[in-house]
Simulated assay, not measured.
Amino acid sequence: MSEQQNQEEQIRAFQRETFESAQKHLAQKGIIPQTVADKDSRFLAPLCAVWKFKAQNGRSYWVVSGNLPTDHAEINAASNAREAMRYFSFQWQLKAEEIMSSPRVDKTQREFAELLVRRAHGLYELYNNDQLWANEPS
């Protein structure tokens, strides 16, 4: 297998894993995915993917998955995958602040809050990198 074929296979594996993770996350929240909008979803292997799902309840959702906590938001939170990244970045910073400001924060909660902050900063860097979005319709 050539280096390029190996790289393409790794990207396909990443897409499968993040897709399955996104579907599982929604199902755990009681949301049954019906279809995925491939043209609106984005894959930044090996970091993360942003999926746009339509659910059986008729609503649509953004789901972020990959090397970070899997999370979802209703479609009106962002107009496209790039904006969804920014949305999740801000939400995670707020959630981390909420965790850290509670009167009793144990070690696990503190570590999770720190992880959220690191991943929020990483997502914002991806959102803010114009080169990654050069081919995006405006």
Rank of each mutant, 00 (worst) to 15 (best):
A84C: 11
L68G: 02
Q93L: 13
L47N: 07
L47H: 04
F53V: 07
W51E: 06
W92M: 09
V50D: 02
M85D: 00
G66H: 00
Q91M: 15
L115G: 07
L115I: 06
G66V: 00
E114I: 04
Q109H: 09
A81Q: 01
A96I: 04
V117I: 15
K54W: 11
Q109R: 10
P103N: 12
W62S: 08
L47G: 03
R86V: 00
T70G: 06
V117R: 11
P103G: 12
L47F: 07
E98R: 14
N67M: 04
F90E: 13
V50K: 00
A78T: 01
V64R: 00
A113T: 02
R110G: 06
M100A: 02
E74L: 13
Q56D: 13
V50Y: 00
K95D: 11
E114H: 08
E98H: 14
I99A: 01
E74V: 13
A49Y: 02
G66K: 00
I75D: 09
A78Y: 00
A45I: 06
E83P: 04
V105D: 03
R59W: 12
G122M: 13
T70N: 10
R110Q: 10
R104I: 13
S60K: 10
N76C: 08
W51G: 03
Q91L: 14
V50W: 02
S101F: 06
N57C: 05
F112L: 09
R86L: 02
I75G: 05
N57Q: 07
K95T: 12
C48N: 03
N67D: 07
S102L: 10
S89R: 03
L94E: 13
T108H: 11
E98I: 08
M100C: 02
A84K: 03
E74K: 10
L116E: 01
R118T: 14
W51Q: 10
E97C: 05
M100V: 01
G66T: 01
F112I: 05
Q93W: 09
N67E: 08
E114K: 10
N57R: 08
V117N: 12
S89T: 03
T108S: 13
R104D: 13
R118A: 14
V64P: 00
A45K: 05
G58S: 06
N67V: 01
V50N: 00
K52R: 15
K95I: 09
K54R: 15
G122C: 10
